[in-house]
Write a protein that binds this DNA or RNA. Structure first.
Lengths: 154, 154
DNA sequence: TGGGATACCATGGGAAACTATGGGAAACAA
DNA sequence: TTGTTTCCCATAGTTTCCCATGGTATCCCA
């Protein structure tokens, strides 16, 4: 699972260190899938398991369903695999950084089955309102319904 | 189950001994999940069963439901797995200790399916009012309703 | 029940391994 | 060539792992 949050610097070659705990969550994969978030000014990332989920969800739509092309484009058409160098870094290319407003620092935020990459100054103000919403939504954490199949997380 | 309360010191390397009875409640797990409480200045902790509850609860929300991101961030974005060393200690990193105001001592408080970690001087004044509230709420301990599914405890 | 032996717990500290980061050289593309 | 990308090496700081110790609780047997 992708847990906790970490800050990391972007060097002159556009490299950022992926937190070691995230690399371990990818258990041996030599790259991570990154894509611009559909609804937020940040990047999202995940491993092969998550890519597989997206593929299956999209393949359930009929070939000519316009939503199929839309989702394929949004995720696969704008995403990419970023390979780790020997030190566990990836390169953030311009199309990704511009979507998220990333300059010289990034904040990795673990969300369980995936993670986000934010410009710290963009994420900061969101953090407080997220926590307030989480407080109001705390009842949802009750294990009162046990019918649904749990999402695959690692 | 996590039962009773224990105090423990924080050493120069930010290590704290987890009470042996809590480690036994985790029955063989080599780490414990810790996160900053959403509504209180303390940390909370639990084992894989509790993490699974959170995953299932969160996965029931739709991907773009803002409450999903909020809860994921509050729990997974700020939590982590703390691995036990050979002596049964974990490391409390700065983001956790600062949330709870922890300096050189902690108080572990068992709550059944989870536990809390407090700075002793923060928890102390809460104790009296908690007991008063428990007194007023004692009627709720009646076993007259047996319909709800009990939470998973060990 | 007493008393000793044993096992376990909490804690301290040193050494090895790992992380994040910088930078150079080789491979590649324009 | 010239600029970019990839690969590799280097390093300081941190984290993890491992061993050691004193104190406490438990067990066992007379």
């Amino acid at each position: 699972m992708f847990l906790s949050s970490h800050e990391s610097g972007v060097d002159a070659k556009k490299r950022v260190s992926v937190p070691a705990s995230f690399r371990k969550a990818l258990s041996g994969e030599d790259s991570v899938f990154l894509w611009p978030s559909i609804d937020k000014p940040c990047l999202e990332g995940g491993g092969g398991a998550l890519v597989g989920q997206f593929q299956r969800a999209i393949s359930r739509l009929k070939p000519l369903d316009p939503r199929r092309e839309a989702l394929s484009f949004a995720i696969f058409g704008r995403g990419r695999h970023a390979r780790f160098d020997e030190g566990g870094r990836i390169v953030l290319e311009a199309d990704l950084t511009s979507h998220a407003g990333i300059a010289d620092k990034v904040r990795f935020v673990g969300l369980g089955d995936r993670f986000q990459i934010w410009a710290p100054e963009v994420h900061q103000p969101r953090s407080d309102s997220l926590l307030r919403l989480a407080l109001d939504s705390g009842d949802l954490l009750d294990p009162f319904i046990e019918d649904a199949e749990p999402a695959v997380m690692r």
